[in-house]
């Protein structure tokens, strides 16, 4: 079973040379720590920066340089700042190659719910609806089950949707799955996790074909 850093580490392998990548809040943010350093990648943050760098050294924080999680950041050589409309032009206009975001639920048709629990938490969708409506390549990073132990990979989402039929791949603490017309296709198992474990934790249709390899981290 993977922890959050393990999930981030596995997703980092999906990041390719020359990619512009948008990372959501939570586990996705950790992905930046594990991207190979022999490839060129630029991270976009929807509040208006391309070419995000690591957190600043203590004493060098700048209230005017933050990421979408409102955390203080730095920029790398070649970085740029821009306004919100231009930021979403990059996203909506499909100039961003890969979007990685968290979710509360994903359906076997690729629907995603990650912004609202009716009557309970009220936070809003931020840029998530724009991202999922336009991105061609969306990977969801999340735990396989919620705190109550219920599956987050469902036949149909029960929570209000963020987007429909948009998720391409899901990486959880248990598995890597691809969304296909027939359901979640199991691609890889996390270390120490059996196909049976994954089946038991997946409410939606799980397609198991042949031997499922363990993740190579």
């Amino acid at each position: 079973m993977l922890d959050k850093n393990g999930i981030a580490k596995r997703i980092a392998k999906e990041v390719q040379d020359g990619y512009y990548v948008n990372l959501g809040i939570g586990i996705p943010t950790l992905v930046a720590n594990y991207v190979r350093d022999d490839i060129e990648v630029e991270f976009q943050s929807e509040n208006g920066v391309l070419g995000m760098g690591p957190f600043p050294f203590e004493g060098e924080e700048d209230a005017d340089i933050i990421n979408a999680g409102k955390q203080t950041i730095t920029t790398l050589p070649g970085a740029s700042f821009f306004d919100s409309a231009m930021s979403f032009s990059m996203i909506r206009g499909q100039h961003v190659d890969l979007t990685i975001l968290g979710a509360m639920e994903v359906s076997e048709e690729g629907d995603i719910a990650n912004w609202k629990i009716p009557g309970k938490m009220v936070k809003g969708m931020g840029g998530a609806m724009d991202l999922v409506a336009s991105a061609e390549n969306i990977i969801v990073a999340m735990m396989h089950t919620n705190r109550a132990g219920a599956s987050k990979l469902l036949k149909q989402c029960s929570l209000p949707l963020t987007g429909v039929a948009c998720v391409k791949k899901v990486v959880t603490d248990l598995a890597v799955m691809e969304i296909t017309p027939n359901g979640f296709k199991l691609l890889e198992r996390a270390p120490g996790v059996s196909v049976e474990d994954i089946k038991n934790a997946t409410e939606g249709t799980l397609i198991i074909e042949g031997n499922i390899p363990e993740m190579d981290l």
């Binding site: 929807e46 919100s84 931020g126 840029g127 609806m129 724009d130 409506a133 336009s134």
Partner: peptide, 23 residues
């Protein structure tokens, strides 16, 4: 959606009555 918020501002600035968005 955040991009819709930005674009509804920009539309007002730019003289567009409305926009179509996939979001």
């Amino acid at each position: 959606p955040q991009g819709t918020l930005a674009e509804r501002c920009r539309a007002a600035q730019a003289g567009f009555p409305a926009i179509y968005t996939p979001a």
